[in-house]
Computed example of a mutant assay.
Amino acid sequence: MRQVKMYRPQVPADALPRLKTILDRGWFGLGPETAAFEQELSALPEVGGHVVGVNSGTAALHLALYVSGVAPGTSVIVPANTFISTAAVVVQHGCHVVLADIDVSTGNIDTGHVRELLRNRNDISAVIPVHYSGIPCELAELNVIAAEYRLTIIEDCAHAIGAVHQGLPLRKYSNIRAYSFHATKVVPIGEGGCVTFPTEEMADRARRLRRLGIDSSQADWSSPYEIEELGFKYNMNDMAAVLGRSQLASLPQRIARRRDIIARYTRSVSSSDIWPVMPRRETDRTGAFAFSVRVEEHVRERVRRQLAEAGVQTEIYFKSLDSFRIGLNGAVPKARKFSKEVISLPVHDAMSDDDVDYVAEHLIGATAS
């Protein structure tokens, strides 16, 4: 039976000799490979900005909150449809999570609900919009709202490397952005991430804070050092950086292939009782992390079971944050409904067109049965 895995991380063959070089060098902690990875990410049209490499997308979000000056004790708006990291870092920073509902057609934060929350509260200091599955959220409108209410925007770009909003790459919107390079992501390095800042001054501070407040340019741990601001243990290491660097040359082609897979899925299911989760306009382009669809709630688990029986792995992106027993509450009925209907399907470099057609055929069949 054919097996279509949800994830199949692909690393170029030349990554192996590059990794051996690092091992032979005798040092594979934070070092020159991380600095080179940061510079190359900064030069990419898909990323840009002043880049700081860290050890996870979660660390990237937390460091972004810290460096941006979001005050502990204030409230931060987070979409209810996201991975738990987006809310966890807000709590860890000493802030209160305010859940926003979503637009079910995209899975992204509902800007109308954001405005409603802001009209009814005066303690909100920031918004963390998530580009769900790589689909760009309404960033231009959020920037207008942020200017009106003097909010900080930190974009959760865990899914969104390469995403385009209204014809512009995300870097053109000049916000702080947090990316993930987890093993499931478009640039998989096992564990890792980065933050992009609008100024080098902010990035320099973040580079110190990611290494407990120690100046990263001071590579020799045996030398005396001073700490002026206590930080975190969030630094990337050179082994992870080498894996990342090996993938950047092929990144545009791999994103294009993933977009082709999503387009093929969309054409296949467009006439059935399946609702693809898609960008709102032609000038928005997904970062193509995943392809999610909605089906009727009462058939969702049966559909997933039949896909599994056919060898197709699926995920649920995501369980609504208010449904966890951890005290994240809010009036988010659309996110709740979405979380009971959504199925996320495989999208990765190793998939053939036949694999895509196989998944689509079994999805349609399971929905109709």
Rank of each mutant, 00 (worst) to 15 (best):
M1P: 09
V11A: 14
A13Y: 13
L16M: 12
L16F: 12
R18G: 12
R18P: 11
L19R: 06
K20S: 10
I22D: 01
L23A: 08
G26R: 08
W27E: 15
F28L: 11
G29T: 12
G29V: 15
L30T: 15
P32V: 15
E38F: 13
S42M: 14
V54D: 09
S56W: 06
T58R: 06
L63E: 09
A64N: 11
S68C: 11
G69C: 07
A71E: 15
P72S: 15
S75V: 13
S75L: 12
V78S: 00
S85E: 12
H93D: 07
V97I: 10
L99I: 11
D101G: 05
D101Q: 08
V104S: 07
G107E: 08
T111D: 01
L117D: 00
A126R: 04
P129T: 03
P129W: 00
I135M: 04
L139R: 03
E141A: 05
L142A: 07
A147Q: 05
E148I: 09
T152D: 10
D156L: 02
D156K: 01
A158E: 02
A163K: 01
V164D: 03
V164I: 06
Q166M: 12
L168P: 02
L170M: 03
L170I: 04
L170N: 02
Y173F: 06
S174L: 04
S174P: 14
S174Y: 13
N175W: 05
R177P: 10
S180K: 04
V187Q: 08
V187G: 03
E191H: 14
G192K: 06
G192H: 09
T196A: 05
P198N: 07
T199E: 07
E201C: 10
M202K: 10
M202P: 11
R205H: 15
A206K: 03
A206E: 11
A206R: 10
R207K: 15
R210E: 08
D215H: 12
Q218A: 12
D220K: 12
S223T: 13
E226S: 12
I227P: 13
Y234M: 04
D238N: 13
M239F: 09
A241E: 05
L243P: 01
R245P: 06
L248N: 03
P252L: 07
R254C: 02
R254L: 10
I255R: 07
R257A: 04
I261Y: 00
V269S: 00
S270G: 09
I274C: 00
W275K: 02
P276T: 00
V277L: 05
V277T: 03
M278Y: 02
D284P: 04
R285M: 14
A290K: 08
A290G: 13
S292H: 03
E296L: 04
H298N: 03
R304S: 05
Q306V: 07
Q306T: 03
E309N: 06
V312W: 00
T314F: 01
E315V: 13
Y317D: 12
F318T: 07
K319R: 15
R325Y: 15
I326G: 14
N329G: 14
N329A: 14
G330V: 09
K334C: 12
R336K: 15
S344P: 03
L345F: 01
H348G: 13
A350C: 08
M351P: 02
D353C: 09
D357N: 05
V359Q: 00
E361G: 07
T367M: 01
